[in-house]
Amino acid sequence: MLITTPNLAKPDETYARLIATHDGLSEGESHALNARLVLILMNHIGDDMVLAEALRLARDPGAV
């Protein structure tokens, strides 16, 4: 089951780290980083059902 309730201990810090990770990258490099990040996180999650829910939610955030 995909967690959609708050699950980050320090949301501001975590979000800032995501943005900072892109510092100094071109748009193309940032897209490539994001693609790698998605793959890494997908593998970490592993659960097909959770991933399917996440993909659905990302595609259509209004469909919760």
Partner: peptide, 13 residues
């Protein structure tokens, strides 16, 4: 983009 991300990661991960 994703295909090349996979290839890039494959070298180390």
């Amino acid at each position: 983009l994703f295909r090349n991300a996979v290839l890039e990661l494959a070298e180390t991960v």
